[in-house]
């Protein structure tokens, strides 16, 4: 059980990022780095890589099944960003722009390769006497990853970007080249599907 007061109550909490992101670089700081990098300052670009690369890698690991593919795609996205920095106009945040490039790379890769099915046994229910509080984070993470892998691609992308990476729905819409209304719908469906697939963890 989750704890007192949690059973069967409905929630009106808005979906939000579950964890405050690490000290976020300001938009102005990012813009200054991009401008310097666009004029050839590789050190400035390496700072961009260090700032945003971990989040991109975290996202890619859940967006594709093969960890090596994830690393390759992040690398491709960052190098592509380096080569097209002069096209960054600052209308979106740098983070949104980078995620947009990565999402595009992942979509292209997915069209080239067949998706690898997820193993159902990963979703196996924890054994009796394993209450949620005692369940290891590793087990929950594995179950979540398995549940995520069953979501349609865009639902998974939206859930990861909003709830894990903390992008606003408008930013996600920009990265995915869709509308905020569509993002809202995808997020609601993703949350419902994940909650159902992970229902075993609440029993």
């Amino acid at each position: 059980m989750l704890g007192p007061g949690s059973s069967a109550a409905t929630s009106s909490r808005p979906p939000s990022a579950a964890c405050a992101p690490p000290p976020a670089p300001t938009r102005d700081e990012d813009l200054a780095l991009v401008r310097a990098a666009a004029l050839g300052d590789r050190v400035a670009f390496e700072t961009v890589v260090d700032r945003h690369g971990p989040a991109l890698t975290r996202y890619a690991r859940r967006a594709v099944t093969d960890p090596m593919d994830a690393e390759d795609l992040v690398q491709e996205a960052l190098v592509s960003a380096w080569q097209s920095l002069d096209r960054f106009d600052g209308r979106s945040s740098l983070r949104t722009w980078l995620f947009g490039i990565l999402v595009h790379k992942i979509g292209s890769a997915r069209r080239r390769r067949r998706a690898v099915p997820v193993q159902d046994e990963v979703l196996d229910r924890p054994g009796p006497g394993d209450p949620l509080q005692a369940a290891s984070d590793g087990e929950l993470r594995r179950a979540l990853e398995a549940a995520l892998a069953t979501l349609p691609e865009r639902q998974r992308a939206v859930w990861l970007l909003v709830q894990v990476e903390g992008l606003s729905q408008a930013e996600v819409a920009s990265a995915l080249r869709t509308t905020p209304d569509a993002v809202r719908g995808l997020l609601a469906r993703a949350r419902r599907s994940l909650a159902e697939r992970m229902g075993q963890w609440r029993a």
């Binding site: 059973s7 984070d137 929950l140 894990v164 909650a195």
Partner: peptide, 17 residues
């Protein structure tokens, strides 16, 4: 979503984040 479901998803997202 129920509060339980919200809590589960929040905990899960925190793990990844």
């Amino acid at each position: 979503l129920t509060t339980e479901e919200e809590d589960l998803l929040d905990r899960s997202a925190r793990l990844l984040a």
